[in-house]
Amino acid sequence: MSDLRELYQEVILDHNRRPRNFGELEPPCSEADGHNPLCGDQIRVYVRIVDGKIEKVMFQGSGCAISKASASMMTDALTGKSVQDAAKLFEGFQAMVTSDMDATVGDEMGKLAVFAGVREFPARIKCASLAWHTLQAALKGAHEMVSTE
């Protein structure tokens, strides 16, 4: 069962149980909805940008442990980051969860490295990346629904 513990690390379970920055962010902010039609995961991400920096990012929705923890840890990781740094982190996250199993994970991923275990569970990659895709849409100010399909 080592694979399972690799996926469901303690920090992921903790964020699943007690998601950070969970709730609605009061305006001014932009927001976007994300949806994984395969499993029915729904998420709304709110983001407030002040002077090119992410001042606050919050989320609401329902989903599995991986999608909830990923959203929660994303909000922690991005608060205070510049929009450019956020875009880099998004790219890094995508690369990490879709890379080969033996590829090394860069230090820049910080705590997000716990999601490297998702690589071994192809069916769950979309769960991990839903919040990130939705954040991208919110940053673009796009209001259309994001879908992982």
Binding site: D3, L7, C64
Partner: peptide
Amino acid sequence: NAHPHDVGTVLDQRGIAVRAGH
């Protein structure tokens, strides 16, 4: 305490195929 997809993944690791979703 666990979303159906998480239940599905735990079971899959044990060789058990069930449907999880809507």
